[in-house]
Write a protein that binds this DNA or RNA. Structure first.
Length: 212
DNA sequence: CTCTCGATGAACT
DNA sequence: GTTCATCGAGAGC
């Protein structure tokens, strides 16, 4: 039995990413900011499973951008995309096997007033961290936080993952990954808490548009 | 060097 | 349903 406010041990992440991903649902991510603390309950995640996964940023091997995916478990992989957004992954084991869990959505537990400063367009609480870039914006996470340890003992660390209230595996729903095209869309490696209002609606991958 | 397009979100029809 | 904001990784030359 976990104490909900205890940090998860690093061994939590030193497992295959497909085991870790559903086990992250219901966990608490803590973000310590200069103006206070935000905590989020994770409600939707996606697994990216090694260099053989065609949907993964590691599919074409190691680059400066994705280096954190090859690093130690229990650290972040934060990437920049579409010229304006950041998204947050948590890296899983074993070290050297490029894997990560994209944090797609969460429910703000505390610090909503701080999140509103950064997410002024959210029309309700459920929208504050619904979608991976929204979640990163809500927590004010960007590239400087790439490679951050989330298993450290310091309660004041920039990011920490606490045990929270895990969701029984049988209660977790699973389906195709959002926004992943081609063969990468085949694997049902998106996991979410059914019925949670903070879970983003499924959007099929947009094929490339015709150009003039 | 140039070119394409992406693990997206917001605004709009 | 559509368009656009906006930039860097990766591929091709």
């Amino acid at each position: 039995m976990y104490l909900t406010d205890q940090p998860l041990p690093r061994t939590f992440f030193d497992r295959p990413v497909l085991e870790v991903a559903p086990d992250l649902l219901g966990r608490t991510l803590v973000r310590n900011l200069p103006d206070g603390r935000v905590t989020v309950r994770l409600t939707e995640v996606e697994a990216y499973n090694g260099e053989a996964d065609p949907g993964s940023h590691a599919y074409r091997g190691r680059t400066r951008r994705n280096a954190s995916m090859y690093g130690p478990p229990g650290h972040t992989y934060v990437y920049f995309t579409y010229g304006m957004w950041h998204c947050v992954n948590l890296v899983c084991g074993p070290e050297g096997f490029a894997s990560g869990v994209l944090l797609r959505a969460g429910e703000i537990l505390t610090g909503a007033e701080l999140v509103r400063l950064r997410r002024p367009t959210a029309r309700n609480d459920a929208e504050l961290a619904r979608g991976p870039a929204r979640l990163a914006t809500a927590l004010d996470v960007d590239r400087p936080l790439d490679g951050t340890d989330v298993c450290g003992p310091d309660p004041g660390a920039p990011l920490r993952l606490l045990a929270g209230t895990p969701v029984p595996r049988a209660s977790v729903e699973q389906g195709p990954r959002t926004g992943v095209g081609g063969e990468g869309a085949l694997q049902p490696w998106r996991f979410w808490i059914p019925g949670d209002p903070s879970v983003s609606p499924y959007r099929a991958h947009q094929g490339r548009r015709r150009r003039s």
